[in-house]
């Protein structure tokens, strides 16, 4: 059984049975990685070192925190207290680093509402 180790102190959430000391489940991360990684040149499956999801579990924390902070900035700009997806979209559009997410927030808009709402959200 896995026990709390000092490196788990990097999280506030403590240790759960599901994720171990990591804030996000490693198996899930690995699945997403597997899908994004193609095949090797000889057609074999790309392998993923056990440590790679460990890095991602922490990286995703940093990423979520940063995106959330920037979305919250947009929320405050609108003098609101509830973070909406439009705020996330604003954060993405305002941050060069997050350019790769433009389609994600756009897709969400299209899934969620009509074009009029979309245009308003993207301002």
């Amino acid at each position: 059984m896995r026990q709390a180790r000092p490196y788990s102190g990097m999280f506030c959430g403590g240790v759960s049975a599901r994720t171990g000391p990591h804030a996000l489940p490693l198996a899930r991360i690995k699945k997403i990685m597997k899908r994004s990684a193609g095949e090797t040149a000889d057609g074999g499956a790309r392998m993923i070192s056990g440590e790679a999801p460990v890095v991602f579990s922490k990286a995703c924390e940093l990423f979520i925190a940063e995106l959330t902070r920037r979305a919250w900035a947009a929320t405050l700009d609108g003098k609101r207290r509830t973070v909406h997806k439009e705020d996330v979209a604003t954060a993405v559009h305002n941050t060069d680093l997050f350019d790769f997410l433009v389609d994600v927030v756009m897709a969400d808009h299209h899934a969620g509402g009509d074009d009029g709402e979309d245009a308003a959200a993207l301002e």
Partner: peptide, 15 residues
């Protein structure tokens, strides 16, 4: 919707 969007973004980030 914000939660779901962030969720999507995380997956996209990993990809």
């Amino acid at each position: 919707d914000a939660k779901e969007t962030i969720q999507e973004c995380v997956s996209e980030y990993i990809s």
